[in-house]
Amino acid sequence: MVTKIELLIVLRKIAFGSECIAALTGVFFLFNYKIKGVLKWFSIFLIYIFINDIIGYNTRHWFPNSNNLIVYNISTTLTFLFLFFMYHQYIKEKTSKRFIKYFMVLYLVTLFISGFYENYLVQLQSIPFLLGAFLLMTSIIFYYAELLKSEQIQESTKDFLFWISVGLLIYYVGKMPFRIVRDYYANHNNFSTLFILNSIFTIIMNSCFIIGFLIHRKTVSDRYSR
């Protein structure tokens, strides 16, 4: 019978593999298909996340006495800022765009203030992460609300950003409870269930990214075949 630890190890490998496939797929489409605007940088962003996870995972193996949490704190900050910027660029409704600007500032201010009682060298972001995740999900809701009002609603599933948003929304909806209880359960023997769920959400998110790339390819191919 497979234990939770064995299942966790397998799922982590699959999650890491899904990151690799998503990143490589993004690079392929970056050079072969017309991904417009900020979305073309999304492919490069996926490469950064993949490389960051390689560094984060191997830091303790390379440097046994070191702590890898600063690596993840930096990537978390850059991730939120990039995604806020991406939605700000693609959302057209002025009120929503203004709110997303406020979200970016609020996240950075919270990150700065929390730095006085959270040591980002040895602790993961807690309140800044939870706030950033909530504000990002709100930004995604702005995007979907605008999409529902548009004339392109029937073509929404062909939109590259639609699938990115699906993946991000599922990931952060699952990630927020995980991060709330992570510090408590990390010190107990039954922590593996939470990390298993986190790996599953990571796999789902990257699968959505890959689907988005493939649908974008079909859309572009259909456009040029007409």
Rank of each mutant, 00 (worst) to 15 (best):
T3Q: 10
T3A: 04
L11C: 11
K13R: 14
I14C: 08
A15W: 11
F16N: 01
F16T: 06
F16L: 04
S18W: 12
S18F: 15
E19M: 14
C20S: 07
I21D: 09
I21S: 09
A22S: 13
T25S: 14
T25K: 00
V27E: 00
V27L: 15
F29K: 00
F29L: 14
F31D: 01
N32H: 06
N32A: 09
Y33D: 09
I35R: 05
I35Q: 06
V38Q: 01
S43H: 00
I44L: 12
I44D: 02
I44M: 06
L46E: 02
Y48M: 07
I49W: 03
Y57L: 08
Y57E: 05
N58C: 06
N58F: 10
T59M: 14
H61L: 12
F63P: 00
F63E: 01
F63K: 04
F63H: 06
P64I: 12
P64G: 06
L69R: 09
I70W: 09
Y72K: 13
N73H: 01
I74D: 08
T77V: 14
L78I: 07
F82I: 02
L83E: 03
L83I: 13
F84H: 05
Y87V: 00
Q89T: 09
I91Y: 11
E93L: 10
K94I: 07
K94H: 12
K94Y: 03
T95M: 11
K97T: 07
I100Y: 11
I100G: 09
K101A: 03
M104Y: 09
M104T: 11
V105Y: 15
L106Y: 05
Y107W: 08
Y107L: 09
L108D: 05
L108H: 02
L108E: 02
V109I: 15
V109G: 06
G115T: 03
F116W: 12
N119D: 15
N119R: 02
V122G: 07
L124Y: 11
S126Q: 14
I127D: 13
P128A: 08
L131G: 01
G132H: 01
A133N: 04
F134R: 01
L136I: 03
L136N: 07
T138Q: 04
I141K: 11
Y143C: 00
A145K: 15
E146C: 10
L148I: 05
L148E: 09
E151W: 00
E151F: 10
Q152F: 11
Q152V: 08
I153T: 09
Q154D: 13
E155K: 14
S156R: 12
S156P: 00
T157Q: 15
K158T: 06
D159N: 14
W163P: 04
S165G: 02
Y172Q: 07
V173K: 02
G174S: 04
M176Q: 07
R179C: 00
R179K: 13
R179Y: 13
I180W: 10
V181C: 03
D183I: 11
Y185F: 15
A186W: 08
N187C: 01
H188S: 12
N189M: 12
F191S: 13
S192D: 11
L197Q: 04
I200Q: 10
F201C: 09
T202A: 12
T202C: 05
F209V: 14
I210S: 02
I210V: 14
G212T: 04
I215K: 14
H216Q: 13
R217Q: 13
T219M: 10
S221I: 12
S221R: 12
R223L: 10
S225N: 11
